[in-house]
């Protein structure tokens, strides 16, 4: 990634991005621990659990697979819900592809690491060099932390007990708060955030899991394509 360095970027700024990436890797790792435990208690074996974390590698979709199967849902329903939730990663890729402009094997690697966290860190950086550093560092930190602690969680199994007791579900929601927070400095983004929350909560009782989050994209389209807010 040497050629990706931006000369205008200070070493201190790069260190700050790396620290953020490491702390996100640790934080999502803790969530991975609960995923591993939940997957095993839902009836998957350790290796199926690890294939989800290594290959699917998208927390929301993985929890969807385990949740649907754990509730007695079909494999088809689990795959559909997971894929619907994963469509947002494809949308993130539209943006991260512009920042990274990867080719060859790096395109596949970048695609695999395109998740909420890596995208949020990349788009939150002030310079293209920091954005690229943020994407790769965060993607790799989350991949390592997520998989290592998924394995630990699957091995520990029921030892973690109910992750709700430790507030891990609240920590997951808080992680998304922290990821969206730096993006809310401009009026357009705040409008989109309010619209997205209203759309998601209105649709949650009506639509299958995953759809309310996807439908919230309408808020970005309306504000982005419309004439409101900053030019």
């Amino acid at each position: 990634m040497t050629e990706a360095r931006d000369p205008s970027t200070s070493p201190a700024a790069r260190r700050a991005v790396l620290r953020q990436a490491a702390s996100i890797g640790l934080a999502t790792g803790a969530y991975g621990l609960s995923f591993g435990a939940l997957a095993v208690t839902a009836g998957l074996d350790i290796w199926q659990t690890m294939v989800l974390s290594l290959l699917l590698f998208s927390g929301g979709s993985q929890f969807a697979v385990v949740g649907v199967l754990g509730d007695g849902g079909s494999g088809q329903a689990a795959v559909a819900t997971s894929t619907l939730l994963g469509v947002r990663n494809g949308l993130y890729g539209l943006e991260t592809a512009q920042i990274l402009r990867p080719s060859g094997w790096r395109r596949l690697a970048a695609a695999h690491l395109t998740i909420d966290e890596s995208t949020a860190v990349a788009v939150g950086q002030p310079t293209p060099g920091l954005a690229r550093l943020g994407f790769w560092a965060t993607g790799l930190a989350v991949f390592v932390g997520w998989n290592a602690l998924t394995f630990a969680g699957a091995v520990l199994g029921n030892a973690v007990g109910d992750p709700r007791r430790f507030g891990l579900d609240a920590a997951a929601a808080a992680a998304f708060c922290a990821l969206v927070w730096p993006r809310l400095k401009v009026t357009d983004a705040r409008l989109v955030a309010v619209g997205a929350v209203l759309i998601a909560l209105t649709m949650a009782p009506l639509a299958p899991a995953g759809v309310p989050v996807l439908a919230a994209v309408a808020a970005a389209v309306v504000v982005g394509v419309g004439r409101w807010g900053s030019p």
């Binding site: 943006e95 909420d116 929350v197 998601a200 949650a204 919230a216 982005g224 394509v225």
Partner: peptide, 26 residues
């Protein structure tokens, strides 16, 4: 501009869904 705002929409919706819904109920 719309695609640039998409992560805000999706992340905000994820906060809402993860914090205020359970099995499709508010």
């Amino acid at each position: 501009r719309a695609t640039g705002l998409m992560p805000v929409a999706l992340l905000s919706a994820l906060v809402a869904v993860q914090a205020f819904t359970s099995a499709g109920r508010l």
